[in-house]
């Protein structure tokens, strides 16, 4: 079998797993299982990114989302005070409208994907795309990184301020 055929098979397997695991997030009857299903969906998308030549970003997506879902599972156990795997849940609202919006979005985006006359590929990827990304973020696209950095710091500060028991102006002397 040719490498292209293997890549095609891997893409379809990962694509089906990503979508089915994504659907399972809202179908399984516990938050723990939903978390693992979402992690599986992200890992499948990370593998597709690897197939698309994104060695660094594919690995980042896989590693980051596995850690993020582990944090999410801990969060659920901490705040719900129970074993989330034993918690049945069907807490939905506007169910029919949401299904309609989802189906409508898929039809619209799918039609766009199939009907738009996509242009030919322009240029070829660098021999080492990871090195090219590193040089871009530290060179021609440094402004992007410079902008993201304060956003990340602001996120850390805002996250701590929001989630602290004591507010910004509360000295802790209130009953």
């Amino acid at each position: 079998m040719s490498p292209d055929l293997w890549a095609d098979l891997a893409f379809w397997a990962c694509g089906v797993v990503a979508v089915l695991a994504g659907a399972a997030v809202f179908y399984v009857d516990s938050m723990a299982r939903a978390t693992y299903a979402l992690a599986l969906s992200f890992v499948a998308v990370g593998v597709v990114l690897l197939l698309l030549g994104q060695a660094y970003l594919g690995a980042v997506v896989v590693l980051m989302m596995v850690m993020e879902m582990a944090v999410m599972a801990v969060y659920m156990v901490m705040f719900m005070g129970m074993n989330p795997a034993l918690m049945p849940m069907s807490m939905v609202h506007s169910h029919r409208a949401a299904i309609g919006a989802g189906v409508g979005a898929f039809l619209l985006l799918g039609a766009g994907a199939l009907l738009v006359p996509w242009p030919e590929r322009r240029g070829a990827p660098d021999p080492d795309v990871t090195a090219a990304l590193g040089e871009a973020t530290m060179g021609s696209h440094m402004l992007v990184m410079v902008a993201i950095s304060p956003v990340m710091v602001a996120t850390i500060v805002a996250g701590v301020v929001l989630s602290l028991h004591r507010g910004r102006y509360d000295r802790g002397d209130r009953p």
């Binding site: 694509g15 990503a18 979508v19 994504g22 659907a23 997030v25 809202f26 969906s41 998308v45 597709v48 989802g102 189906v103 979005a105 898929f106 985006l109 799918g110 994907a113």
Partner: peptide, 8 residues
Amino acid sequence: VAAALFAV
């Protein structure tokens, strides 16, 4: 596939 993920 991306559209399906977005829709879900």
